[in-house]
Design a binder for these strands. Structure first.
Lengths: 378, 378
DNA sequence: CCACTTATGTCAAGCATTGGCAAAAGTTAC
DNA sequence: GTAACTTTTGCCAATGCTTGACATAAGTGG
């Protein structure tokens, strides 16, 4: 039923268009499909009945609202499967969903070697994990309609590293080609991990109901994913969202990016760990949750610095929402972050913006890979 | 030939669609129209010949490139007229073009009272100037297909002031309704002046060939207009682009926006005038052009501060181009601005960005009004 | 149970699209 | 200067989509 790029073959153009919209936007009613496809009622109706006859689409009862309830249509697993892969420093996470946006699996493994420095090793493990998870859900690679891969580096439109100095080991290779070679398949798309998390939160999480949002990922590094007008914004060479290297103090210490006083140097995971003495960020989050005062103060200060850096962003972009994720103890730093915003951004923008923790937690990156594979950014 | 919203009546849907695209995007070839309308060759051809028969469209020979040259189609003046109005502190400028994007007039008058503080007076004069300029080009108000009005304040989607503390006198009224009342017409759209200038530079000026740009307007205040993916970006409550109130120094003096150390306080027109002793920015520009060292130094420092503020923007947005306008001696501060960028933004983004002076000078705002009236942002 | 609201199916007439073919209007190579 | 090439344009018929109207279905609230 699927060709090499994951689209349905052997049906007319209207049915393909309807199926594409269902894949990109998730389960929808007839009226929504008419709007989104631009096709007419009879055409959408016909397409849906032929898709239903082929078993690619199922009809579900909708929730009524004053009249006859609109049926909701959903692509079935028979239509195909989307895979998301998130490669981090210390883990690889694989999520699998069907084209009806139903999550089938979501599994992480720990990385023995630092993912930032050992791309080939990480890609080997990622490929193995993809096949393992697919087997676990009883699927095979030829059912896969798309794979979305997240790596912790800015990427150009062509899939090359946008800023090699930040992740030198990855700069030499094409992550997309390497994963496709290992899996012997086509249809892999690569994206920066913070961008993917932003996409996932926008599609299913804390940003579901807004069109302009900034997702801030706090981890070893600090990155941001920007969704504007409902679409992922990548910038000219793909380095949009490099919040970690926004200058806070032009006379501060020198950063690996070559400038002074970057946000990452006062609010990044490396510095927090060095100052708290915790082994990793998870331990630090646990300590903070238990009330450890120095951990809490470190996180509060980090939040305030982030807020100051985001204040400039708020004046320039004025998004609906700021979503903070990537770290389990986000709550501790949200209030100081709001204070930092209020100190540096205009009142109207501060009042309008909603600062919220992410809903998808550690899975955000891999789910963003699924979102990319589903084409929600189309 | 025009209805109240400026669209053509009495023709089929294809012809209306083609005319709309010509209005929004300017003169185009058949192939471009096919692409932009999504219609087929025969349909576009038929629409063009009926539009040509009605005298709404003219065909012009195109420049050849290896084969038969494609004819370029352009809306005529018979299709209607677009008006742009730019209200500033000390001037009102009105520009008029036909729907074929041909400029017919572009005239400024000086304001005797500060436009920021006397909105009703400014709107009275603006309305009078619109009718005067229309008369001068031999047109009447019922030929007008749209009016775009620029005012120096952030605006919400509904046309209200987004941040009242910056321009209190304008916060009470709807500039759109006031101008429509004075001209007894419909079809006025309002927009922030920096946004309009950005739109104009994107459509006809220094940003013609790129899709992601930031236009920086240096005047009494400092504003920016942001075009992303070819569309004007306004933000959640319309305050996107408030570059003047980005924090440079959290311990600096208090600004009218309520925060400390805003860019406007070190690089804004008010401070430059106070420190240089010049009467207005035009005099300052003249002095700088004549080599006056203190003026040049003041401008160079302003450029550097702007560069530092824009460095944060560059890390977050990574646009193709930064266009600087609103002030005649922009050249003096571009090099220091580039240095400020390099100090604070990541190398990849700095290398990729092009920093250029605006091409449209003082007319940028009014031309942006014309662009808005033409619907180039659609 | 009835009136009301919203959703859905069906049908015929009118357009638009697709894809192929031929002609027009230039450039470039010889 | 002529021939070959490239790109644009016009035309045509079969197919498919849209429009608009009407009837029916499936809920809600009184």
């Amino acid at each position: 039923m699927l060709d090499i790029s994951g689209t349905i073959v052997g049906m007319n153009v209207a049915a393909r268009r309807v199926a594409e919209v269902l894949r990109n936007r998730g389960p929808r009613t007839r009226a929504e499909l008419i709007m989104l496809t631009g096709l007419s009622r009879p055409t959408v109706g016909g397409a849906l009945s032929s898709l239903a006859k082929a078993g690619i689409v199922v009809e579900e009862p909708g929730t009524p609202a004053g009249g006859r309830p609109a049926a909701v249509f959903r692509l079935t697993r028979k239509a195909g499967i989307a895979v998301g892969v998130d490669i981090g420093r210390r883990h690889i996470r694989v999520a699998v969903a069907d084209l009806g946006h139903t999550l089938l699996a979501d599994q992480a493994i720990r990385l023995d070697l630092d993912g930032d420095d050992h791309p080939h090793h990480a890609l080997d493990l990622a490929a193995a994990q993809v096949t393992a998870v697919l087997t676990a859900v009883g699927a095979s690679l030829d059912e896969v309609a798309g794979i979305g891969l997240g790596i912790p580096a800015p990427l150009t439109r062509e899939g090359r590293i946008g800023s090699p100095e930040l992740l030198p080991a990855w700069a030499e290779l094409s992550a997309r080609d390497e994963l496709m070679k290992r899996l012997d398949t086509q249809g892999v798309r690569v994206e920066n991990d913070a961008n993917l998390a932003a996409l996932a939160e926008h599609t299913w999480g804390a940003g579901k109901d807004c069109d302009d949002l900034v997702y801030v990922k706090l981890a070893t590094g600090i990155g941001a994913g920007i969704v504007l007008a409902g679409r992922l914004y990548r910038g000219s060479v793909g380095t949009a969202g490099e919040l970690g290297h926004v200058t806070l103090d032009a006379r501060g210490p020198v950063c690996r990016c070559g400038n002074r006083g970057c946000v990452e140097l006062v609010a990044g995971g490396r510095v927090l760990l060095a100052q708290s003495g915790a082994r990793d960020l998870d331990e630090m989050a646990t300590l903070a949750a238990q009330g450890d005062p120095s951990c809490r103060r470190l996180l509060a200060d980090a939040g305030r610095y982030l807020g100051i850096a985001l204040g400039g962003m708020l004046n320039l972009l004025n998004p609906d929402r700021i979503i903070v994720g990537g770290f389990t103890a986000v709550d501790v730093l949200l209030e100081p972050l709001r204070l930092g915003l209020a100190e540096t951004a205009m009142a109207a923008a501060v009042e309008a913006v909603q600062v919220r923790p992410g809903h998808l937690g550690e899975s955000a990156g891999a789910l963003g890979g699924v979102a990319l594979a589903l084409g929600v950014d189309k």
